[in-house]
């Protein structure tokens, strides 16, 4: 038996302070979800205010950050996302050309795209990554941003987006594949790595093509 939370558990002032503590994280997510700083501000503002109004529905002791992000995500999905046409085009494109079917990037290329000794991409690719994220379809972007920027669990993301966990995983997977492919192309263009045979599995160094086909 969970005792019913006291309706007056948080005064508006107290809850406002709690929300202010979450504002940076929410802004970071909003900045990735929208392409424009002004829109990101509006989104966070609306979501924060909605949270404040609905504070009676927050169960004290549960994860405030996840609750706030849920409101932010819903506010974004319900009001801020781009027009439907673009999305349809994107979804159609994915079905026609599944990025998952695309080839691997060789270990050597992947290594060349990273900063040596560090858990980060080369700066030139980091900038491209940000641009590429902006261009992801909304559903993919929301899932990926919640996963990578706010490090929510798949389960929490599924709750936020109102979709099954499998859908969340698939969206994150596809988003990453799209980003990887974009980064690979950019790295080739920037002369960081050499073009690998497109559309086929690239054979890791030290193995023959026959072996790798398995």
């Amino acid at each position: 038996m969970t005792p019913a939370p006291d309706p007056s558990a948080y005064s508006a002032k107290e809850f406002e302070a709690l929300i202010l503590g979450q504002l940076d994280g929410m802004y970071a997510v909003a900045r990735r979800l929208t392409r424009d700083a002004t829109v990101a501000e509006d989104l966070v503002h609306d979501a924060a205010l909605k949270a404040l109004k609905a504070r009676g529905q927050f169960a004290p002791g549960t994860n405030l950050r996840a609750w706030m992000l849920r409101i932010l995500t819903n506010t974004f999905i319900n009001g801020y996302r781009r027009g439907g046409l673009e999305r349809t085009t994107f979804e159609g494109a994915h079905q026609a050309e599944d990025p998952v079917a695309d080839g691997w990037i060789s270990a050597a290329s992947m290594r060349a795209m990273r900063e040596p000794e560090e858990e980060a991409l080369r700066p030139v690719l980091r900038a491209e990554l940000s641009r590429a994220v902006e261009e992801l379809p909304d559903e993919f972007r929301v899932a990926l941003v919640l996963c990578d920027v706010e490090e929510l669990s798949y389960k929490e993301i599924a709750e936020s987006m109102g979709t099954p966990i499998g859908t969340v995983m698939s969206r994150i997977h596809r988003a990453r594949k799209l980003l990887q492919e974009r980064l690979r192309k950019h790295a080739v263009a920037a002369g960081i790595i050499a073009e690998e045979t497109a559309g086929t599995n690239v054979v890791p160094i030290g193995r023959s093509r026959k072996e790798a086909k398995g």
């Binding site: 406002e16 929300i19 202010l20 504002l23 940076d24 994280g25 929410m26 802004y27 970071a28 997510v29 900045r31 990735r32 700083a37 501000e41 966070v44 503002h45 924060a48 205010l49 990037i105 270990a107 992947m110 290594r111 795209m113 990273r114 900063e115 560090e118 858990e119 980060a120 991409l121 690719l125 980091r126 990554l129 940000s130 994220v133 990926l144 941003v145 990578d148 920027v149 490090e151 990453r176 980003l179 990887q180 980064l183």
Partner: peptide, 30 residues
């Protein structure tokens, strides 16, 4: 290498996103 690459993508995205704090104007407005 795939794990290292995926981790570097994840980390880069997170670092870039958290580079900007919520602007003072947003705090004031809220």
């Amino acid at each position: 290498e795939r794990v290292a690459f995926a981790a570097s993508m994840k980390r880069s995205l997170r670092t870039a996103a958290h580079a900007e704090a919520a602007p003072a104007s947003l705090r004031a407005r809220f």
